[in-house]
């Protein structure tokens, strides 16, 4: 069994676990467990990047893997927990769509992503699974943003989408050029910080972070 085959087997398992973590986020009603699932997912992503780095032997991708580990699996979850703790928000997330329908929609999105990937002709076993997982992550992230009321969950949805794109980039082209990857990490980190600031601001001016409140500007 060659290294690459073993690598792709591991990769598939990691991607399956990434899907599991996505559904954990979809199926959870507590902020902390959502954040934890996100952290696990980022950790798995770092693992995917690590395997790709190992099997291609490119040092660039090792850097990307380490950055994913540090920024997405450690720093960003920490920022989330800090925000949740500081604004003393209720730990249960409020929903527009209940958990069970959410899960079903999530499943449907995965199917749609699969057919989308099938319709553009990209063949190899690894990348078609990874790519459909990546597109499902993006679409589920989008779905989380519109179906959850708390501003924090919208932030999490964006990060989920970003994770999906990261997976897509890794599986399509073994990642983007290093300069671009670094830029993306920088933007994601700054973006999270600024969204954090905005959430504090929302909490202070509206005394809640339910996005229900944000309905004054219409027309």
């Amino acid at each position: 069994m060659s290294e690459l085959v073993f690598g792709s087997k591991m990769m598939q398992l990691l991607i399956a676990l990434i899907l599991v973590s996505t559904f954990m986020i979809l199926g959870s009603t507590r902020l902390y467990s959502c954040v934890r699932a996100f952290g696990i997912q980022s950790f798995l992503l770092a693992g995917v990047a690590g395997i790709v780095a190992y099997s291609t032997g490119k040092s660039d991708i090792y850097i990307v893997a380490i950055l994913t580990l540090v920024i997405k699996a450690a720093v960003i979850p920490y920022i989330f927990i800090y925000i949740i703790r500081e604004i003393k928000v209720k730990r249960e997330i409020a929903l527009y769509v209940n958990i069970s329908p959410s899960l079903i929609i999530g499943g449907v999105l995965v199917v749609i992503s699969y057919y989308l990937v099938r319709s553009i002709n990209i063949r190899t076993e690894l990348s078609s699974f990874a790519l459909s997982a990546s597109i499902s992550l993006v679409s589920i992230g989008l779905f989380i943003m519109i179906s959850r009321k708390k501003a924090i969950m919208q932030m999490l949805g964006i990060l989920l989408m970003e994770n999906g794109l990261f997976l897509g980039a890794i599986s399509l082209t073994y990642g983007m050029p290093l300069l671009v990857e670094l830029g993306i990490f920088f933007d994601v980190l700054i973006g999270v910080l600024i969204m954090g600031i905005l959430i504090f601001r929302i909490n202070r001016t509206f005394e809640s972070i339910d996005t229900d409140m944000l309905k004054t500007l219409i027309g």
Partner: peptide
């Protein structure tokens, strides 16, 4: 209130 709301919408929609 309105500017915070606008900023949040701007941030979220544009980031997506």
């Amino acid at each position: 209130k309105s500017s915070v709301e606008a900023a949040w919408k701007y941030m979220i929609i544009c980031t997506v």
